[in-house]
């Protein structure tokens, strides 16, 4: 009985969480301009989303979003991994200071990060565009990379690196053959985290994107919604994003559960 109510409650919450996205998904299969009108089944919105033409700006916004996310995630993974190795080998006050600084972008609300970087760029007289958005994204992504890599370094036996040096490896070889393989899982989850954070971002982007007409998906949706009419093609797009994320997360979770089980079995 108790279990029944518990389950019912969970399903009620899930219904609330998923009703909006379900409605979008259902109405992505009809042509009507206004959401809520069902004018028969059609996949026209899906084809017109990818055929470009009228909605070229939406496609280029998606492209910009992906390029920015990949570049920002790659650069913050590199910067963050190098920094993590450095911070791991620091001691005392220096370490405490840099860790505190590393926490600031994570604790700051997006709007503050956005405005502070906006003020930085305008007072230095830098024209805002691609470069400033990527720099801004690196700023709020790198701390998460550092946090993903750090635990791997702490688990690592510090003697292995020394042993490699004693056995005649150059520091560069020791880095490539010892440290990088150890921290690789942390770097990968850091990259994925940075990538999703960058794709999701709106508040920081809008302050650093400038006025040259550059658009990411978030700013496109925002501008579109402000004009009043939402582009119907946003419905299939949201549906695709939703399904992709759903599949990705389930695959990742099933895999990690299987790995955990295998680990237990071998014990």
């Amino acid at each position: 009985m108790k279990k029944f109510f518990a389950q019912a409650y969970l399903w009620f919450l899930l219904a609330m969480l998923y009703a909006p996205i379900l409605i979008i998904a259902i109405f992505s299969f009809t042509e009507a301009k206004v959401l809520g009108n069902w004018t028969g089944f059609s996949t026209k919105l899906y084809t017109s989303l990818f055929s470009g033409g009228v909605h070229h700006s939406l496609l280029s916004a998606i492209e910009n979003t992906l390029i920015i996310a990949i570049v920002a995630a790659a650069l913050s993974t590199i910067l963050g991994s190098i920094a993590a190795v450095g911070i791991h080998n620091l001691y005392g006050r220096k370490k405490a200071v840099i860790n505190t600084l590393n926490n600031i972008p994570m604790l700051n609300p997006d709007i503050i990060t956005g405005i502070s970087l906006f003020l930085l760029f305008v007072s230095l007289g830098i024209t805002q565009g691609y470069a400033t958005v990527i720099l801004a994204h690196i700023t709020f992504c790198t701390p998460y990379v550092v946090l993903c890599v750090m635990p791997r370094l702490q688990q690592m036996n510090p003697n292995i690196y020394e042993a490699a040096l004693d056995l005649g490896a150059t520091p560069w070889q020791a880095l490539r053959k010892v440290i990088i393989p150890e921290i690789k899982p942390g770097m990968i989850s850091g990259f994925i985290l940075a990538f999703t954070l960058s794709i999701d971002d709106f508040a920081v982007t809008i302050f650093t994107i400038g006025t040259e007409g550059l658009e990411t998906l978030s700013t496109y949706i925002y501008a579109d919604a402000r004009k009043g009419g939402l582009t119907p093609e946003l419905r299939p797009l949201s549906t695709i994003i939703f399904v992709t994320v759903l599949i990705l997360l389930i695959v990742i979770n099933v895999r990690s559960q299987r790995a955990a089980k295998r680990k237990e079995a071998t014990r």
């Binding site: 910067l79 190795v85 450095g86 791991h88 080998n89 620091l90 840099i98 600084l101 690196i138 700023t139």
Partner: peptide, 25 residues
């Protein structure tokens, strides 16, 4: 080659893109 040195680029980055912007606010 000293590994603690490797934190310096990020430290500079943090000062430039986190501390300085907040001071500007």
């Amino acid at each position: 080659l000293k590994r603690s040195t490797w934190s310096i680029p990020y430290a500079i980055f943090l000062v430039g893109f986190v501390v300085l912007p907040l001071i500007l606010i």
